[in-house]
């Protein structure tokens, strides 16, 4: 599942991950939409932006973890200060990828989190 308020980012992440064999169960443009989508279509792995309208990514991460503590979340955000990254990890994110990122960086993180790469 891909969560980002930018449609360009949602489409880019979809484009980068689809050839690897990942099935994108859905995309959402804010935290509230993401929670609704997750309840309908629980994903094994979520990419999650932070700065979004209505509900931001950190609040969404907390709520996702309450629904399913095992969900694997990669936070992808332009907020590249160390405090924000640490906060995301403390809330249960598997990793933090700062924007802007390359296709190779995203694939590397996703494969690591998905367990197909050490």
């Amino acid at each position: 599942m891909i969560v980002d308020d930018s449609s360009i980012m949602r489409r880019a992440i979809t484009k980068y991950l689809t050839p690897l064999g990942f099935e994108i169960v859905g995309t959402a443009g804010n935290g509230q939409e993401a929670l609704q989508l997750y309840r309908e279509q629980p994903a094994e792995l979520v990419t999650l932006d932070i700065t979004m309208p209505q509900m931001d990514g950190l609040a969404c991460l907390q709520a996702l973890k309450e629904i399913n503590s095992e969900v694997r979340v990669l936070v992808i955000s332009a907020l590249s200060d160390s405090q924000t990254g640490l906060k995301a990890l403390k809330l249960g994110a598997k990793s933090f990828l700062p924007k802007p990122f390359t296709e190779a960086q995203l694939i590397n993180e996703i494969q690591r989190i998905a367990g197909s790469k050490p």
Binding site: S6, I8, M9, T51, S77, A78, L79, S80, D81, Q83, T84, P98, K99, P100
Partner: peptide, 18 residues
């Protein structure tokens, strides 16, 4: 343009802080 601006503003937090 929104995503680009968001990235610029977010990235300067490395220097300005959280």
């Amino acid at each position: 343009v929104g995503e680009l601006t968001n990235t610029i503003a977010g990235n300067v937090r490395k220097s300005f802080g959280a």
